[in-house]
Design a protein around this nucleic acid. Structure first.
Length: 208
DNA sequence: AACAACCTCAACCGCATCAGA
DNA sequence: GTCTGATGCGGTTGAGGTTGT
C-alpha cells in the first residue's frame, strides 16, 4: 500500500501500551476463552476483558484468521482454486465474499493465495502469449513486448491489487475458459444464478 | 555447508460502513 | 440529522521456512 510508510512495521513502537507482533499460545488461549464467554462480537469488550494487551481489531483478526473453528489449512484443492478464479472474475477483489463460498477458508488466506499463486499463473500465461505474439510479428530480437512482460513480472502485486472490478474484467480474459459454468455442480450454479439476478437487480435500480 | 531465491503465512494499516447515542 | 465508536474489508509488508544452486 502506498499509505505504508518506509518505516518497517515491526520496528514501529507499540501503540499506547499495546502489544504487537505474533501471538503467543497464551494469548490465543485467553482470546479463545473470552470469545467463548462473549461470543465472536463485541471485540472491544473481548480485548478489554481477556486480559490481553491487544486492540480489538487485532483480536478480531486473530480469531477470524486463526482461532475460529472449522478453519481449513493446507493446500488449495484444484476445485477450490478453480472456484476462486471464477469467483474473482465475478466479484473482483471482494475476498470476504469469495471466502464465504469456500467453507473453512479465510479471506486473508484466499487473498494471499491469489496475490501470489494465481497472479503468477497469469503472468506465465502472459509471457506465453507475448512470445506467440512476437513470433507472429516476425520479430527476431528480444521484443519490446517481451521486455514489457518481464517488467510486469516485477510489478505483480500492484497490478493484482488494483480496485475490484477494474482488473477483473480487463486483465483476466485469459481465464474465460475457467468461467464456463456449463458443467458446474447444481449448488454452485444456483448461487451464481442468484448472484447474477441480484446484481442485475442492482444495476437496474441504479445500485439503490 | 552456505547462500539465494522462492513461497507461505500472519499481522498491520487505512479507509469505508454500520449502529447506537 | 449528526457524531462517534465499533466493526469489517482490502492492500501491503516482512519474517521465517523450504527448495534449489
Amino acid at each position: 500500500m502506498a499509505a505504508s510508510t518506509s518505516i518497517k512495521e515491526k520496528q514501529r513502537p507499540p501503540k499506547k501500551g499495546l502489544d504487537r507482533g505474533p501471538w503467543t499460545a497464551e494469548e490465543d488461549r485467553k482470546l479463545a476463552d473470552a470469545v467463548g464467554v462473549h461470543g465472536p462480537k463485541k471485540w472491544t469488550t473481548i480485548a478489554a476483558r481477556a486480559g490481553l494487551r491487544r486492540c480489538a481489531k487485532s483480536c478480531r483478526l486473530r480469531w477470524m484468521n486463526y482461532l475460529r473453528p472449522n478453519i481449513k489449512r493446507g493446500n488449495m484443492s484444484d476445485q477450490e482454486e478453480d472456484l476462486i478464479i471464477r469467483l474473482h472474475k465475478l466479484l473482483g477483489n471482494r475476498w470476504s465474499l469469495i471466502a464465504a463460498r469456500l467453507p473453512g477458508r479465510t479471506d486473508n488466506e484466499i487473498k494471499n493465495y491469489w496475490n501470489y499463486h494465481l497472479s503468477k499463473k497469469r503472468l506465465e500465461k502472459q509471457v506465453l502469449v507475448a512470445g506467440i505474439f512476437s513470433e507472429e510479428m516476425g520479430s527476431t530480437s528480444k521484443s519490446g513486448d517481451q521486455e514489457m512482460v518481464e517488467e510486469k513480472a516485477t510489478t505483480t502485486s500492484t497490478s493484482v491489487s488494483s480496485k475490484a472490478g477494474e482488473d477483473s474484467e480487463a486483465k483476466f480474459d485469459d481465464f474465460d475458459d475457467f468461467f464456463d459454468f456449463s458443467n458446474e455442480n447444481p449448488s454452485t450454479l444456483e448461487w451464481v444464478t442468484k448472484f447474477l439476478d441480484f446484481s442485475n437487480g442492482l444495476s437496474v435500480d441504479g445500485g439503490n
